[in-house]
Structures are given as structure tokens and as C-alpha cells.
Amino acid sequence: MTAVHAGPDTGQGGAARPETLAAGLDEDARRWLEQARAEAAAQAPGWEPRFAEAGRRCGPADDARVLLLTAARPDPADLTRLYRQGTAAERRAVLLALPLLETDPAHGVPLVEDALRTNDTSLLAAALGDYAARHLQAHTWRHAVLKCLFTGVPVSRVAGLASRSRGDGELARMLRAYAAERTAAGRAVPDDLHHVLALTEEER
């Protein structure tokens, strides 16, 4: 009677093709998703509740929710509302959908910045995809990388890490200062810090 799903939400969705996604679902979930996607594409009034309930219909749901968003293509005001009124999982889906929806940075960046203010590591990771790599200001992006080191989000989850870090002297300074602080406190310096620091030292 308990809804037991095949696995946990991966928190790594974003670009799964509908066929790939459907292949991992059972018959009921597949039918539900097909129907929900059609409602979303038609912008039928019931599509937003489908977005909310995707987790219990076809979890792991990040990919399914992103699929609904790309089908519905909500305007920036609706997208912002879906984020603000969403659970952590729904917010994650909105963040993952930003690059696919090619949301205007005037609307998308404030959502990324909101997620970067949280301490929920699944939101941080979802916020640091291609969209952030393309649109975040240098100061915000550097603090996001540092926050990954603080909260244990693997920097492998940061899109465009190598290209944005390369030759970034300010990021290098921040990383060295953090390493010094860790060392002074007798704490280990995370491997990821050395990795990013090496990237900053590559020539631009």
C-alpha cells in the first residue's frame, strides 16, 4: 500500500528525452505522464496540479517535471510563480528547466539567486547548471562555487566550471583565503578546492 518507487530522485534531471524517461516508468506512470504532458502542452488549467503531483505519479520526478515545463512553456510570470509556490522538488525542476526554456535572464537569474541563498544542497546543485554558467555575474558565480565547497556539493555539478574559472584571479584569491582559514582551524582542505584552484591557474 505504500508507494515505493524504483529509486530516489536523482536531483540530476534536466534534459532527459521523453522516450528515455518513459522507458524507466511502469505502465501507469507512463500513461499518466503522457496525459499530463498533453495537458501541459495545451496549457489546460489542470496542468499545474500535475506538475505538483508528479513525484507520487512517476517519481523520480525531476525529469518528468522538466518535461511538463518544456511542454507548457509558461511565461516568465507563471514560471516565477511556480518556483515561488513550489516545494523544494518543484523549485529544482524550474531551475533545471531554465536553460531549456531559454528564460530571459531578467526573470531567470533572480530564481537562480534565490536558490543560491538557500542551504538545500539539491537546490544549489540544480541552480548551477548551464543557465547559471551563461548568465550569472562574476561575483555571484564565485560565491556560488565557494558555497559548494562549504556545503559539500561536488563542484563537478557546476556547469562551465573550467571555462569560467580559467584565469579568474579573484576566485583564486577567495579559494586561497578559504584554504588558509581551514588550515588555521586545523581542518582539512577539500579536494575540490585544489581542483578549482588549479583551474583558475590555467591560462585564459
Partner: peptide, 25 residues
């Protein structure tokens, strides 16, 4: 479970989701 929404799967399982346990807290 009368809600149909109770999910008692662990936050993370198995080596295929390495790193994910951190992401899920």
C-alpha cells in the same frame, strides 16, 4: 498510506548515485 503519497524510500541508495546522498542531505 491512505493518502497514496507516503514514500519511505531512503534519501539515497546505491553507488550509481554517488554524490547524490550529499545533494539530498
Amino acid at each position: 498510506s491512505l493518502s497514496g503519497r507516503l514514500r519511505l524510500t531512503a534519501p539515497a541508495t546505491g553507488p550509481t548515485h554517488e554524490g547524490n546522498s550529499i545533494l539530498r542531505g
